[in-house]
Amino acid sequence: MRGYGLFYYISEAFHGLRANSLVNLLAVGTISMAMLIVGFFLLVFFNLQPIVNALGDRLEISVYLKDGLTEHEKDFLVSRLKAEPGVRKVVYLSKADALAVFKKELKGQEALIQGLGENPLPDSYEVSIERPYADADRLEALSKKFSGYPGVEDVSYGKRGAEVLSGLFKIITYGGTALAVLLGVSVVFIISNSVRLALYSRGQEIELMQWIGATKAFIQGPFLIEGMMLAMLGTALATGILAGVYYALPQEVVLFLSRPKGLDFLPPSVVAYMIIGCGFLGLVGGLVSVNKFLE
């Protein structure tokens, strides 16, 4: 069976884009607004992620030891702590070291500890946690487990910090997903409407093509590519605007975000995924309208 390839569909799609330029321009504009929101959100996400990760890396569980543990007991405890999934590093902090750290933290207010007499601080193990385990629930579970180990006096961790971190990540992940789904559906809807208008404006031609033996794919092809191109153009425009705003952003704003490295733009791979993903949504939008129309 002879037939036309992608080149024919693309050239017909361009013809369709030109024929309904005003409607298509509106569609591209609307899509670019939607994708601007997605792009902005992704920009925030990608810039916040290293900060959140760095905070996560700082989360530790302090395992305080009972007085008078033998070296053998301490070694046994260390091996148990290290064997626990999610534990990245275990550092021993003797009571003398702990006091030194404490003094350092209280610099200028050393008088507060002068009356303490004998060092009241216990020996401890500072347990660093791997990033995926650094959420409030997992830290809580690990702490409970560690406190049951023999020779452990008490366990503490930055509960508040872990909760804030987990909450932040949940907001970013779930909020971002919900927003992306919502805007994705909007893109499908916008494209579907735009392609529907194109279909109605070419209804006579489509009917005739059916009469003279055009297959469904032959009729569908240009409209699907048209939908895909509209969505991709809209996304490209949105990322273009975003990039323009990003590069025009005053340095003060970058510093305000307190990242020594400064604010990063979206990685090229993410921009590519955005354009391709939106193109796919455009394809779906086109398919919805064409199938409905041909029925």
């Binding site: 002879r2 037939g3 036309y4 024919y8 093509m209 003279i212 033996g213």
Partner: peptide
Amino acid sequence: ALALKVVGTP
């Protein structure tokens, strides 16, 4: 030409 294109004429 449209009728020819529809059937895939080169």
